[in-house]
Design a protein around this nucleic acid. Sequence first.
DNA 1: GACCAGATTGTCT
DNA 2: GACAATCTGGTCA
Length: 201
Amino acid sequence: MIINKEDFNKVQSLTKDFYNRDTVQVAKDLLGCLLVFNSSEDIAGGVIVETEAYTQKGDPACHTARGMTPRNKVMFGPPGYAYVYFTYGIHYCFNAVTNTEGVGDAVLIRALQPEIGIPLMQKRRGRERLKDLCSGPAKLVQALGMSKEQNGADLTNSNVRILPGWEKQPEMVTTTRIGIKEGAELPLRFYVKDSPYISKK
DNA sequence: GACCAGATTGTCT
DNA sequence: GACAATCTGGTCA
């Protein structure tokens, strides 16, 4: 499970085919996978324990619900790329573009279980406790050291990658999404049951 | 633990 | 000009 900077380019990422599927299914399957960022300092990453699906069709909370803009154009591109956006004046959030090119879907990564480069993440976050490092979409972006420069990055062939993680699919809980107004009642949030690293119960 | 306000700027109407 | 897929630190209990 633990990989180092030298191994980063050797490990097999999830393929484009993984992302080119129904968005809800990808959101579920991403639980237990390993998100890793190879920054200039060192690599850092963790196991995905919480996701949310955002679909263009029938979802008013999705950034692409009202068509393409300069900000969300990555979501309309081919699947398997990173969509990183800026919000609340201070925070970034990380998504994986899913479904077929042109649709406008993505999966928001909401929380990680820290695995790789923990000391570096502790330093970046200014927090010691593991459950404070990546238990929220803006926290994990900060812990991994990502920014808007990762917007549009190829998740199968760049500094940001998602790898197969746990062999067994974890027990999963489905609930409603967090931090949105419209579409808040839709059951599109998924997390690993009993994980202490999720953002909120 | 629960609840609340402040931060702070890119993006869209 | 309004608001945002959030986090933090404060108060009160």
